[in-house]
Structures are given as C-alpha cells and as structure tokens.
C-alpha cells in the first residue's frame, strides 16, 4: 500500500501549496504591525504541510491501515448525510422528531432487529435525552 501513502503525501503537499498561495493571502487579511504578523502561524502550517507532504512522497513506508470497502464508504456517506440533513432540519421540526428520525435511521443501518431494543433506541433514547437537557439541565432545546 505504499502508493496510498505517497498519494497522501501528494495531497498534503498540494494542500500546503493551496494554503500558501491562495487561502492565506485571501482569508488572512490583517496587516503586519509591530505587535506581530497575523499570518505567521497559518504560514507555518502551510509550510509544514508542503514539506511534510514532500517527505511523505519520498520516504513513505507501508502502513497497516486498510482502506475501507466501497460498502463501508457508502455507509459512512449515509450516516453523515442523515446527521447533516437532520441537523439542518432541527430548528424547523424541533428536537423530538429530529432525534427520533435520526435514531430510526441509525438503528436501521446497524441492522438491529430485536424489537425491544429498536423501541428503546427510537423512543426511549430521544425522550431520555430531551428530559435530561430540557428538564434536569434546564437548557431549552428547539
């Protein structure tokens, strides 16, 4: 898997270059004053990415990590998609529908089949969380 490691190095170096050439000049706009240079630390990060990326290309060693299968990546995308979609709807639909929906998606995706555990996760967990925050901790949820 040495190719993967080298590709990571290429990615790192490209990101470093992007930081130094575009992101820092565009988004770090403070002027250099006698108090210091606002872009000092971002530039350190940029150079580190660039140099370390280069070293990674040259000295990559095989790693133990195995890349996940297509199926796993698909599942990751689904989980994240569910969270992002749910969280964007949170202010509109309110906390309980949001959390019940999210729990339902997750339970479905981790192949839980036993009805009592499904019920506990979809109904019990959201209500428990709601009680915890809203009633015990007194923090209003949407």
């Amino acid at each position: 898997m040495i190719l993967k490691e080298r590709l990571l190095g290429v990615g790192g170096a490209l990101f470093g270059a992007l930081l130094l050439l575009y992101l820092i000049p565009t988004f770090v706009t403070g002027e250099v004053t006698e108090s210091g240079d606002p872009s000092f630390f971002p530039r350190i990060a940029g150079w580190l990415f660039l140099v370390l990326g280069g070293l990674q290309i040259l000295f990559a060693t095989p790693s133990e990590e195995t890349l996940p299968s297509k199926q796993e990546m698909g599942r990751l995308v689904l989980f994240v998609g569910a969270m992002v979609l749910g969280t964007s709807l949170l202010p509109i639909v309110g906390f309980l529908p949001y959390s019940m929906g999210l729990m339902a998606v997750i339970v479905l995706m981790v192949f839980e089949k036993r009805p009592h555990w499904i019920a506990l996760t979809i109904v019990g967990v959201p209500i428990g969380t709601w009680l915890l925050f809203e009633q015990i901790l007194q923090r209003p949820l949407p």
């Binding site: 706009t29 403070g30 240079d37 606002p38």
Partner: peptide, 8 residues
C-alpha cells in the same frame, strides 16, 4: 488573531 485582532 491575538496580535492585531484581525480575522483569519
């Protein structure tokens, strides 16, 4: 940023 309080 801590020196000049400009946004980054």
């Amino acid at each position: 940023d801590p020196a000049t309080a400009s946004p980054r």
